[in-house]
Each structure stands twice: as C-alpha cells, then as structure tokens.
Amino acid sequence: MASIVGYGAYVPRYRIKVEEIAKIWGKEAASISSGLYVFEKSVPGMDEDTATISVEAARRAVKSAGIDPKGIEAIYVGSESHPYAVKPTATIVAEAIEATPVLTAADYEFACKAGTAGLQNCIALVNSNMIQYGMAIGTDVSQAAPGDALEYTAAAGGAAFIVGKEGIATINDTVSFTTDTPDFWRREGSPYPGHGGRFTGEPAYFKHITNAAKMLMERCGTKPSDYDYAVFHQPNGKFPSRVAKMLGFEKEQIKDSLLCPWIGNTYSGSSMVGLAAVMDVAQPDQRIIVVSYGSGAGSDAFDITVTDKIEGIQRQGIREMLEDKEYVDYGTYMKLRGEFT
C-alpha cells in the first residue's frame, strides 16, 4: 500500500507582523489578530518563487527519504502561483533534484488544494505499480492586493512528500468532496485574487472539509478520537480550530499542525506544511487525518498511519526552521514582493 517515504518543507525566513500591515491601512491590529488568529506571516525573498521553494522542499524530502532521486518517476507541483503561465514548475524541480529524464511531471492548480491533488495521483500511481516513487509538492507565494483582508495572511511556503511503498507512514485511504463554488478566484493576467468575503466560510471551507472528513471516517470506520493528529487547511488560525470543533476533534489534536498564526496561509502549502510538522513529532502506530481545502471548491481527505520506520529517519525540524526568521517593515515587504520593479 502507498506510503510516505520522505517529506520536506521550506518556508522563507522573512516575516511581517499583522500590526505592521494594519498600521499602513489605519486598522486595529489587535482585533485583526484576534479575529483571524494570525500574528505574523512569511514573506518570500525577492528571488524566491514557487519553483525555488518547491526545490528547497523537494531536496529536503529526497534527503529524508534517503533514496536515489532517479527512482522518482512522477513529480506534481500544485500551486496557484506558478512562475510561468505556460512552462512547468515540475520540470525545474525534477532537474534540480536530478530525477530527470525518465519521469512524468506536471503542474496542478486547484487554489489551495493542488498539492494534495498531486498527492492523490502519486498514491494511485504507486498503488497501481506504475511507478516506484512519486513526489507531490504544494507550494505558493500567494498574492494579496494591498489593503485587502487577504494581505494579513497571504504568505509563502511549501512542502514535498515522496510516496512509495513500505515507508514511514501508510496512506490507508483518500477521498475527495468537490463542487462548483466560486468563493475565491484569480482571472488570467490579474495580479491579485478576488473573493466572496464571508462566502468563503460556511458554503465553501466548512462544507467541503466537514463532508470530506465525514466521508473518509465513514469509509475507514473511524471516529475523531481514533486520530492522534488532525491537519486541516489553514487560511487563518480560526477556521481550522472551528472546523475541528464542528467535527468533534479536540484542540490537542490540531496543535502540532497549526502553523498559520505564525507563518500565515501558505495556500497550496498550507495543509502539507502542517502534515510535515506532524511528521516531525509523530510516533509509530499513531494515526493522522489530513483534510485540505481548495477554493472553487474541493477537499481531499487522507487517513494515515505512522509506521516503525519513522524512527529510522532524520526529522526535518520544521518548527526550528520557522524560528530562524527576520522581521521586515511594510516598505521592505513591498520591495521583496517586487512591487517597485
């Protein structure tokens, strides 16, 4: 059965605090922070994009798996901020980890769940014996219009997972819940996304995540208390806490995956970086539920059991990586985002 054989994550080291953004727009930082449960967000360097972050995460994943990268026969990069409209990010990653040329590769887009869509493909290819190893990456350098509510959370980061057989965590099952729900979008050529405000909540995030999670637990014959860790998409700090409560999960189950309050929403990276942080602390036989969410809209849910092999790999230390950070002011933030060039 398909399992995770290696994982890696990368989050740029620059941060901007909510109060620094709020100051510019005359907003009250305390109410924004408590309303969103977000205190600061990651900011990419001016030479960082979805390709570079994906490569950093992918290289860490290869190192953790301890495999010959030539064995990776599929690479999927999920993002809504691919550097090119036409020209794959996945080939850049494949070349940079020396997995070329005998592999299939493609870029995915499904708002914030494109990475987990790639993960499902890798699972299917491994379970059908079409490939030995597949790599799924979720990365974004997300955009937000200056002054928009999204500006407090739109962040950068990514995670890569290598799927193979007999790895550190068995993927028992996966299921998706998908509808046409226009809660968030970005049109071709538009630099910033538009969104439906409060419409992104109940009929979008909450409906899709709860349905996918319930379907998965029904198929697996599990209940929330059977899981040691729960990982939900994190557009802000509040939504995953609320959806956990709606489904009957305790705060303790989401605390290890909840990174959004300190790094913001890494979009396609969000649930996958959360899962990577859980892999850092998970022990053999522990069970993990992961439910992503992508606007537009859909959720992919995964039931995962950690194996004994987790003890044989070097953990990534993702929370330690997040501690190495440098705060920037709003002017520097705009410069790093390339707003002046």
Binding site: G45, E48, A51, T52, V55, E56, P83, Y84, I92, A96
Partner: peptide, 17 residues
C-alpha cells in the same frame, strides 16, 4: 548553496534559476 531565481529576461522572457 541554496536554489534561487538569478535573473529574468524582462517582463516577458524566461526566468533563470
């Protein structure tokens, strides 16, 4: 060493990593 964008050929050209 780390992997970064080195330069780009203007607004319409290729990115060089």
């Amino acid at each position: 060493a780390c992997f970064r964008r080195i330069q780009e050929d203007g607004k319409r050209g290729a990115f060089y990593y």
